[in-house]
Nucleic acid binder design. Structure first.
Lengths: 219, 219
DNA sequence: CCTACCGATCGGTAGG
DNA sequence: CCTACCGATCGGTAGG
């Protein structure tokens, strides 16, 4: 080691990163309110006071984890938007890119989807605006594939159904199981593309219309 | 009123139901750990001690809400399984039946999907076994439509993608918005049926196979 | 970077 | 002696 440090000093190289990593794991598994600062300190092998050296309060740890993750997602979106792609390819690349990002940040992603509501309004809004940026990119990519969906005003709803498949996956998919994230990305992509490519476009439905029979859309 | 009660006694007719209704709302909005027994008592207009007259502890309130809701879902499944239906109809009826149930129990459903993890193992396992019963019913109905999916061992994964679309909906769908739950049931049904009916069946993929290119499945 | 603490609030229970 | 409660407070622990 070339670092000029007293032998007695343990390497403080990345205490901040250790705090964030351990906190992400605890927030993801126990939920933000149930994970105490003592839990985080113990997991990181630090005193609770040290946590408050790096972060002003518990919420700032949460905000840092969520913002870093959603910012990476915005980067994935920017990279794909910056290059020319055929219409279908852009949406396909977005799905594959997100699944890949999620795979390497499962805990941060769970924190983003479940614990952001515990942030104070200003911090929460900052995260949510980046989430909206991401949702818009998916909706735009979908509209490239089938512009009629946007005119019928179902593009956002379909986009959110897509996010549902992807985001919910982290409640059930075994990372060491038979199906890989790559397998699941292909399955989701295939299912969604077949689902929307032949989707019949209806006039935006009025609520409470008389015929309430079971859908004719399905068959 | 024909009840022989002293005029001074307020009707204790359904304090228990009031507790469950208020607790479901609070657990759904704040999360189970953050909703205190004082919150529940205040919302129900009762003293905290009265809560402990009806329930042994906070966890029993959570267990009661989750069990009642998942039991209703099991009933929906049983009713549909009990009658003869064409293959596609069964899955379609399951989707429509669940969406309808969710619509009338949004809070209980959010509690079921987000807070069951805070139950002690024995109670949690009781809820999870009923959830597995429900998932199996959807997987069976899917296998009726396309038996090859079961042979390829992707029926459970596809079923969970379907649950993802439905369960995630309650994070974004505005109950008073342009799209009704019935509209969404049709959209989900159409998307999923088109998605699986023409799905190419692959040999169960081996992990880490050489060609890692982006899916050919999509187009 | 730690030990030693605080004001408050937690889930749960006492006597009446 | 029961049921259906209440005001007050318990032992512990939260975030800070």
């Amino acid at each position: 080691m070339s670092l000029h440090r007293r032998a007695s000093a343990p390497p403080p190289i990345d205490q901040r990163s250790a705090i964030l990593a351990q906190a992400a794991g605890l927030f993801a598994s126990k939920g933000f309110p149930s994970a105490s600062m003592n839990d985080v300190a113990d997991a990181a092998g630090l005193s609770k006071a040290t946590l408050y050296h790096y972060f002003t309060d518990k919420g700032e740890i949460l905000k840092t984890i969520a913002d870093a993750h959603v910012s990476r997602l915005v980067e994935v979106v920017r990279d794909i938007e910056a290059l020319p792609h055929a219409p279908g390819d852009r949406l396909e690349l977005l799905i594959a890119g997100f699944m890949s990002e999620y795979e390497s940040a499962q805990q941060a992603h769970r924190v983003l989807t479940e614990d952001v509501r515990f942030l104070e309004p200003a911090a929460r809004e900052q995260i949510l605006s980046k989430e909206r940026r991401v949702v818009q990119a998916f909706a735009d990519a979908l509209a490239e594939v089938r512009p009629e969906l946007k005119k019928a005003k179902v593009d956002k709803a379909l986009t959110m159904l897509l996010f549902g498949m992807i985001n919910w996956m982290f409640t059930w998919l075994d990372a060491n199981g038979r199906l890989s994230y790559e397998d699941m990305a292909k399955m989701v992509t295939g299912l969604f593309f077949r689902g929307v490519l032949d989707m019949p476009i209806a006039v935006p439905a009025r609520r409470k219309r008389p015929n309430r029979g079971v859908s004719r859309v399905a068959n």
